[in-house]
Amino acid sequence: MDVKNVGDVKIINILPRVDAYNAKELEDGLNDLLTGGAKKLICNFEKNEYISSAGLRVFLAVLKSMKNSGGEIVLCSLQQSVQNIFDISGFSRLFKIFNTADEALGNFK
């Protein structure tokens, strides 16, 4: 998984494609970060063009888990087609979504 550290914030670059075939890798990668004690996550969707329900459920599970453990996960840079899927799913209201990674970083200052 492509992760960049900015202070204590982890910025995860989400792959162009998250589907049922590779969602498990994403889930394992994110869970490893949580196990390692990460409390501040930004998932950057800049390169992501496709996410199916298998991917969405991973983000919901992480959101729930971080709420319970006192951490926070936010998203940024969703392409219009991906934003549309988040809107239909009702996920746009569950997640804080920022236009850019810089704006998302501002959330943690």
């Binding site: 459920r57 709420k67 899927i85």
Partner: peptide, 22 residues
Amino acid sequence: DVTLGVEERKVGGLGIYLMKKL
């Protein structure tokens, strides 16, 4: 129910709903 909050929202069950919407 896509209007539920994080706590109430169940993980999964979204795929067929998306199919019907799309």
